[in-house]
Design a protein around this nucleic acid. Sequence first.
DNA 1: GACCTGCTGCGGATTG
Length: 749
Amino acid sequence: MDPNDGPSLGGTHEARDRRAFELLDPGIQRQLYRMGWTALRRLQIDAIETITGTDQDILIMAETASGKTEAAFLPILSLLATEASGSIRALYVGPLRALINDQFLRMEELCTFLDLPVFKWHGEVSQTVKHRCIRNPAGVLLITPESIESIFINQSAHLGRLFGGLRFVVIDELHAFLGNERGMHLASLLTRIHTFQIQGEHGFREVGLSATIGDPEPAKAFLHPDDPTQVALIQPRGEGKELHLEVHAYDRSVLENPDPGEGPKSRQEDVRITRLRPVAHDIVRHCGGGSNLVFANRKADVEVLCDLCTEFAAPQGLPQNYLVHHGSLSRDIRETAEELMKGSGQRTTFCSSTLELGIDIGSIRLVGQVGAPWTVASLKQRLGRSGRHEGEPRRLSIYVPYPVGDEPELLQRLSYDLIAAIASTELLLEGWVEPMYPPACDLSTLTQQILSVIVEKGGVRTEAIYDLLCRKGPFRGIEASLFAKLMRALGGKDILEQDPAGEIILGLEGEKIVESLDFYGVFNASKEVKVVHEGRVLGALPVLVLPKVNSFIVFAGRKWKVLSVDLGEWEIEVEPSVSRGRPKFAGYGGGVHPRLRQKMREVLSSRATYAYLDAMAGQFLSTAREVAREADLCKERFVALGANSTLAMTWTGSDIQKTLLAMLGLTDINCHDAAIGILFPGSIAEVREAFASIKGHSFSPEGLTECVERDADRKFDYLLDEDLLRVMISREIIDLDGAKRVCEQILSE
DNA sequence: GACCTGCTGCGGATTG
């Protein structure tokens, strides 16, 4: 810092702006003039000061379209302007190819007057470009974690040249990596890159960017695991965007009379389609005048809603501009939708979480959300897609369809989905989102990294692999004895072998795994069958729940009849039809944070009114509060539902709930998860006794794993033995302290 | 029955 930088000067935004601008390289300054920038935003000034004035790692938490990529790169490019070549100097890591393509253009533009090359590297980039980067590494490289992996596997001889002089790693959409195996993978690769840094140099600094970080601590720990307190936090104060919120609810009348105008239906319509009819009518009304995004919780709902809206809009003379976008559609259909959204027409796209991240799809007037959002984080991310321009409000409409419901009647009358939607909205307004912690015991991704290290280095001693992967970086929670067990298990399955010199090499099965194209990523992809019409691939459906021949599906926003299912060719042939059938996609459930269930309890027990509820939603809320009051749900922890059925109100999240169910399972009580509580056969006295008995019992986490059901396997879990799986579940799902705490609360209240 | 993401190198033929 300038010693003459007195407090009197530092006071005004204009003065700080001017001084921050002067810290930038003249080539960058010139480009900013050319791009018509008149001022830097506070966030950018903060980032310029911190990046040029300190040697800290940095976490930038700000809304999408707030200019946070520029906040990071204006100063980084300025610092690198005079030392461009000899090595990649800055790495930009993004979770999506589309995002890398967008950012590549912006980065090139910023570098117009700098002698600083910009490279991109992902699966769709030509080998020519990749080889140019390897021959003459310099400047900035934009890349995915999987492509970094491919460099370790296929270009290991060049790692020192590529990364020896690396100064910065910028991780965009950091939340997309926190709390999952892809983040473990990335963190492990970055740890390995550190070992290629030129001796005596300072090493690289990390910068994380995200709009959706609930708790900055795990994000800081991701960037700087040795000492998270060293990470500087840049977070602009609330910019107070105007917010238009609406919550719409629907009653069951549509189920009795689906379509008054159409006369009797020849075929019984799937109730999961019928319940979406009034929602689609509202979406057609609300989505005039601009481009809109409507998120639904299931791909099947995305398809059905698009088809219903197309049909409803036709007779009213409304433009049929409804599009679909989700992960099972072909790339060509998805890219067409993205292009159309960017164009001048007014379109509405129904999507799953594919359009949650920051890829450019033009200006969005309204964001719709059908059903209660899975998490507050995803609701926040979705809301952030609207109102991205200065002076434009954010608009969010949540549509809560009538529940299909096989839960107990009391819970149905509580309008679980609506209360969950209100609770999520309230938490969002309070600024809370779920904290994201990394998996505690990801032996699957560790296995992948062990194989990767062996491919990179040839034979390696066990201790050297342990030092490299587990002493520092994301696997530091794996102790030496557990690592040794893992190595033995992999040896037993011919994945690894020990050569006569005592070094570990790949076994026969290990060779096969590593040679597969699939090896570069660490997440599990389900097997799929192509959906084809006259030679054109529309997308794919999971092989687990294939449609029957002659059945009907809505897919890519249109109705089809299934002509054939060919498992030899992995192909489903379809032809256009006029009948509407709901497609099936295979999926598993996800977790709910305890805070959401606690908020639901607050919503039910308070008298607060919410201005964003429509008449029906308001009415359902009153009924739910009445039901809760009559049964004393919010105060009483045990509620009799019938002669021999009791609901214990836990009001907690899914991990604690799973642990409680496992504890009760061990004591031979046959009970069920009912979201806000646990459902028992038996009287209140018996259930109270059951809780008292598990409170007094001392459980071992690993014993409980027998009774816990896991949602989904990780990619390399199939290589682990029972013992290792038990350790993994006990460390990741079982929450003994949390369960005991809930137990005590239940018994004392 | 939630949702999403990613990915070679090489040999041979064709084209400018």
